[in-house]
Computed example of a mutant assay.
Amino acid sequence: MASDLASNQETLVTVFGGSGFLGRNVVRALAKRGFRIRVAVRRPELAGYLQPLGRVGQIHAVQANLRYPASVEAAMRDSHIAINLVGILAASGAQSFDAVQAKGAETVARAAAAAGARMVHVSAIGAHENSLSAYSRSKAAGEQAVLAAVPSATILRPSVVFGPEDQFTNRFAALARISPMLPLIGGGATRMQPVYVGDVATAVAEAVDGKARAGATYELGGPEVLTMREIMEIILAITERNRMLIPLPFGLAKLQALFLQFAPGALKLTPDQVELLRSDNVVSDAAKAASLTLEGLGIAPDSMEAIAPQYLWRFRAAGQFQRNGA
């Protein structure tokens, strides 16, 4: 272990999108393994909170914007490994799905190839070039561009990711705090395999450590396949909220999303997000058969019911002081 840490100290890893929800967990996982970490973000002056995750001088933030190739090339200078975590859940202005998740991924991959660096690219389960969702199509285009530039790149496709700062469980818990009912888009039958952010970060670190297959695509899911209704029920049980779950047909949900795409915070819903919910988001049988999963990397995934209570307690009526049954 000590020898591994010593050798890793000679390896510089550039993490694009390292200040986000998944990014900070990836930076922490890499820091524990002794890597030198360069965090490439649009606003490095706002990423100072990452430095305490490692030793003095181990983590350094630099400016980079995937829409500007020169900044990406500068961020990759002298780097041995590139990690691309950059992604958006909703397009806005110049930050379109294509610009960020397709062309942006290509820009990182080309910079990695020019630097002779290995690459780990985080995509998403459901990425497909013929998807009705612009999000999924751009994710698929990004994967293709990465492998075209760096054929040895490892692609990681997580299902929906949960954790303390997520925009998934926290969003519905926040909605339950202000609304007497929660919508079940498409009846809540869509199946997902929620995966803990810490497990995804560990998978990224394993790939950086060379323990993932070069050129392979891994699908990362948690230990359980749950419907949206079951996920909502778990969140309500943890937050101790009694709320009605109202089925909402896809057509009506998409109509509402035309207006809610401009709403703030937890109320925001885009037509593209409705499209995403038309398809299940689970690890494929092919990935399981090929051991291209968390388990294939030697990671035993944590369940939502085991992790979510550690941070969703703040949505209870009395927070951490809520008594059971109160």
Rank of each mutant, 00 (worst) to 15 (best):
A263I: 11
L12N: 04
I59F: 05
A6Y: 07
V13S: 03
M304G: 04
L30H: 01
Q63H: 02
D199T: 05
Q167K: 15
I125Y: 12
Q63K: 08
R213G: 10
P164T: 11
A253L: 04
A306Q: 15
M181D: 01
P194I: 10
D98A: 12
G104C: 03
G251Y: 03
G298L: 13
M244D: 05
Y311P: 05
I88S: 06
E10W: 02
A326E: 15
I235P: 06
I235F: 09
P164N: 13
D209L: 14
S7E: 10
V120N: 05
F172S: 04
L269V: 09
R229I: 00
S79Y: 01
F162K: 13
G87F: 13
A124D: 14
G17F: 06
A75C: 06
A237P: 04
P52M: 04
D302R: 15
M232Q: 14
Q310R: 14
T154V: 15
G126R: 08
V100S: 09
P180Y: 11
I155S: 05
L267M: 15
I246R: 04
E240S: 11
R36K: 12
A189G: 14
A114L: 01
T217D: 00
V208C: 03
A75I: 04
E295A: 14
F97I: 01
D199C: 05
R229Y: 00
R137K: 13
N281R: 09
S159T: 06
A82H: 02
F321W: 08
R28Y: 04
S7A: 07
H60S: 11
R33Q: 09
F97P: 00
G57N: 10
Y68Q: 14
T217H: 01
F97V: 01
S131H: 06
I37S: 05
I81G: 00
G296C: 09
T107F: 07
Y196V: 08
D166Y: 05
V200I: 11
P194N: 12
A6S: 12
Q58C: 07
Q320M: 01
G87K: 12
S131L: 07
A127C: 05
L132Q: 11
T154K: 03
G187S: 02
L66F: 07
D98E: 15
S152I: 00
F168I: 12
